[in-house]
Nucleic acid binder design. Structure first.
Length: 492
DNA sequence: GGGCTGTTCGC
DNA sequence: CGAACAGCC
């Protein structure tokens, strides 16, 4: 390589230059040691296991954007400013560290078990080799181990958790991107190209709707944040549950990959509240959603296996149904419940679904269809651009009734009432379920109640142009409540 | 972060 | 007779 000492910046879910503490530490280290920074991204099994079709698509775009930003900052035209590797992260880093010029490695912390286990081992190994090795806090406002109840335990309920967070010292101001970067420009063994990651979707045109809706990368994330603050935060508290109004931030995939930090979001929202009297309520409603993200990570960190094990033990005895046909219909948006089908189709086409609709489609799956929440989780993992190890399993346990501070299982959403309340004119349904486009408002959320005349006028034939509901709402509700009772009996 | 059903209260 | 509310799942 070279004689100059090298600091490795190991990027993971922090694909940004601004407010990146590990990067700043690496840059500072390089400056003080008259050295250079070697930015790397390693596609190992831990990361690979956490990717689905939609997140793969996102990651490829995000890495490309990050490379460009690093190249600009490091004053090179190289398309390999960010060095890419595939394989065991420990092996890769040890191989890189075999070069005697490599003296230090920096990264920002993650909170899922496979990552923390890996990172702990790597830190021990690298320090054994005599390297400086630093992990930084960057992707959460509050470390999971810093938020404790009065009796020194971790939290199980959101409200007291978030109250406790807000009593801790205020999250630091976001830091700027480094002003310059002494980028290492030499050769590194076993470095590969982004195409070798094999992240592009097949078939290629599947991602058209994702492409249209999202701009992965740090600039896209900043634009998303400030468009939201400027135009939509004002109505957020009042309209956040309305999928037909699109006032939510849609920052989740950017946060998922760390293209923007929660500190940047927190302070932008608070500055908005300070500058706009009367807007404190809507701002804190929004900031409380960052709180849910923190809570999901808190739970993830303390749980044994959030993806597979219900936090409430009695749910091990729940009589889930093995309904492959129902699952398939749900995945394809062919359940016969318009708001559910709209959501599932929005998901497939854009990699995203409005939060309120996620609750409705989740409730239908685990309650009316009695299908295991893990099947819903797996589908969301594959199709959502924001699927992450914390929010996705946390939320499925929430709607499954078995999670932390979960919706009780007997709290069953009625997709008709939810549709009428949160998509009152049926605009959201009409957008994603075009075969119901001409249904009158009164029946858009319950076409099975419309008279033959009305159906004909709307050019709808149930069972042909649009499915009959998979199950009657009353029947499904009663069946779910019975299953719940059976579980409680079985659990003793 | 629900919904259903039965009851009460106000007109 | 509908809105408001309680109790239950």
């Amino acid at each position: 390589m070279t004689e100059r000492p090298i600091a490795v910046m190991w990027f993971r879910n922090d694909l940004r230059l601004a407010d990146n503490p590990a990067l700043l530490a690496a840059v500072k280290w390089a400056k003080e040691n008259d050295g250079a920074v070697l930015p790397v991204f390693i596609l190992d099994d831990v990361i690979s296991d956490q990717l689905g079709g939609a997140t793969k698509w996102w990651l490829e775009k995000s890495l490309t954007a990050l490379n460009r930003n690093i190249a600009d900052l490091g004053d090179t035209k190289s398309d390999r400013a960010l060095r890419l590797f595939k394989g065991n992260a420990k092996t890769v880093l040890e191989t890189i560290a075999d070069d005697k010029s490599v003296k230090a490695v920096f990264w920002n912390r993650l909170y899922d078990k496979p990552s923390t286990k890996r990172d702990t081992e790597i830190k021990a190994a690298l320090q054994n080799h005599g390297l400086t090795c630093e992990s930084h806090k960057a992707n959460l406002l509050f470390e999971p181990w810093d938020v404790k109840t009065g009796s020194d335990t971790d939290f199980k309920v959101y409200s007291p958790f978030w109250r406790a967070c807000l009593k801790l010292p205020t999250p630091r101001e976001p830091k700027s991107a480094p002003e310059s970067l002494a980028l290492f420009k030499g050769e590194v063994d076993e470095q590969i190209n982004i195409a070798d990651f094999d992240l592009s979707p097949k078939p290629v045109n599947w991602a058209g709707g994702l492409e249209e809706r999202f701009s992965p990368g740090e600039q896209g994330a900043k634009d998303q944040l400030f468009d939201f603050i400027d135009d939509r935060l004002t109505d957020y508290a009042d309209l956040r549950d309305r999928p037909d109004r699109r006032v939510t931030s849609e920052l989740s995939p950017h946060l998922r990959f760390g293209e923007i930090s929660p500190y940047q979001v927190w302070h932008a929202a608070n500055h908005y509240a300070d500058a706009n009297p009367g807007k404190g309520k809507t701002a804190s409603k929004f900031i409380a959603e960052l709180g849910w993200r923190e809570f999901a990570h808190h739970i993830l960190y303390h749980a044994t296996d959030l993806r597979s094990v219900p936090l409430q033990g009695q749910f091990k005895h729940f009589p889930w149904s093995d309904d492959a046909k129902g699952l398939r219909a749900w995945q394809k948006g062919q359940t016969g419940f318009p708001i559910v089908d709209a959501g599932m189709r929005e998901l497939w086409h854009t990699g995203y679904m409005h939060n309120r609709v996620r609750m409705i489609v989740g409730s239908i799956l685990v309650k009316h269809l009695l299908i295991h929440w893990r099947d819903g989780l797996a589908w969301f993992d594959d199709t959502l651009v924001d699927a992450c190890p914390a929010n996705n399993p946390f939320s499925w346990q929430w709607i499954g009734g078995c999670g932390a501070d979960a919706a009780p299982y007997f709290r069953i959403f009625n997709p008709v009432l939810q549709g009428e309340k949160f998509d009152p004119k049926g605009e959201y349904v009409r957008q994603w379920v075009p075969e119901l486009r001409d249904m009158p408002e009164q029946y858009i959320h319950k076409p099975w109640e419309a008279s033959p005349l009305i159906l004909k006028a709307a050019d709808v034939t149930l069972g042909k142009t649009y499915p009959e509901p998979l199950i009657g709402l009353k029947e499904g509700r009663e069946r779910a409540l019975e299953a719940y009772q059976d579980m409680k009996k079985a659990a003793g």
